[in-house]
Design a binder for these strands. Structure first.
Lengths: 218, 218
DNA sequence: CAATTATTCAAGATATATATAGAATACTTG
DNA sequence: CAAGTATTCTATATATATCTTGAATAATTG
């Protein structure tokens, strides 16, 4: 196999995989499955796709090794092939949320609607931590936490949050943070923890902003 | 803005960005630009696209905020918007090369054609390092190097290799490694360094395999 | 075994993406 | 300012993707 032939095969394969996830409906399905296995019915129910259409999208994802299925009784359950894909997906989401201007605007607007009046500033955070009963939660991927985090924060990456609720004392004021105002991880964490009955708010800034503030005051 | 409306806008925006990179020709262009700024002519020259077609692909990438352009004299130079995208791209490549069976086969076949008979095993590596004149080169992104690397290795990420040749002594036996047998970074490094006249081979395994071996022998 | 339920398949209409060819623009050089 | 070069634009043919509809399959229940 010659160089060009190899390149063509490589780029064709990669493009094929990317095409499989380049569709709004399939992205929504991926997002759903990232929270765990779902039946076709479950997917149809929350996406407003028809059965036939959802099934077609699932076939595309399956043919590209992104999801797998198993049959139990008359139901077919779909799930992501593995966590590596999830990590890629999160990187893509992160990039997109930071870089695509339109998306950025939509997201910040959405955040205003939902959470802005409740978000904690860095100054407030300092006071609250001094005051006492606060749990500061870093929901970025653990790699990023290890490279640096806000003093006193504990790390539970967003994709592990649901399975690690036991590590969050339910009597504390939880403050979730991530990479900054345009990162959605903390928003997702707030949403999930609220549903589970926690007292939780997000930091309006993120680790990068905190880091800069630290550096400047020293 | 209501929940569904938000979701739709978000998934539509993300899908649009992904579609922009879901094309073999555009992936090849991205790969080229990840090594630095290029003129349209440069791209046409190495890709075998026509001018008009290359230009169209570049417009797609530009409209999706993936590349930027600047004009100097009669030439237009394109480059990636920023390094964040590069990091996403590398994650995608990594996932694809590990997960897509077809791609995996193509890649390992390619490696056999080119390098397999020359690849260094972990056992050989140990002997060579004891023997002396060896430079062990980690070509993974620097974040990964910082989280752990083979003892004695120096870090030059693949995308910085071309601009850091001065740090590689030309009289040494260079051994490049990355994430393992299905990762292509070391292959690319071997190719580039060979062209530049270095004595270079790749490790047939990668850091993860080395790490496991270390753990087991202790 | 007929009826029901969950899912997939197949065919067609519409929309989008791609490559090609030729024209248009815009800058540079003589 | 005319000629040349680099790049982009426009139009078109072809290929691919998407959604809809209705039928087919396959397991379960009565």
């Amino acid at each position: 196999m010659k160089g060009r032939e190899f390149k063509d095969a490589m780029y064709n394969g990669l493009a094929k995989m990317l095409k499989a996830i380049s569709n709004p409906s399939r992205l929504e399905i991926i997002e759903m499955l990232s929270q765990g296995e779902k039946s076709v019915e479950g997917i149809v129910h929350t996406t407003s796709l028809t059965f036939a259409n959802a099934s077609q999208h699932l076939q595309v994802l399956k043919n590209n090794n992104i999801v797998k299925s198993r049959k139990e009784r008359q139901y077919v359950y779909y799930s992501l092939v593995n966590d590596d894909f999830l990590s890629v997906y999160q990187h893509i989401i992160r990039f997109a949320s930071q870089e695509i201007a339109a998306l950025e605007r939509i997201m910040s607007r959405q955040r205003q609607d939902n959470n802005a009046q409740h978000a904690v500033s860095l100054v407030e955070l300092e006071q609250m931590v001094e005051g006492g009963n606060v749990l500061l939660l870093d929901v970025r991927p653990s790699v990023e936490y290890e490279l640096g985090h806000i003093t006193g924060a504990i790390s539970i990456p967003m994709n592990e949050l649901l399975t690690n609720l036991k590590n969050i004392a339910s009597d504390k004021d939880v403050i979730a943070y991530c990479r900054g105002p345009f990162c959605v991880l903390a928003d997702e964490a707030v949403k999930l923890l609220k549903e589970k009955g926690y007292k939780v708010r997000r930091l309006d800034e993120g680790y990068p902003e905190w880091k800069i503030k630290q550096t400047m005051s020293n």
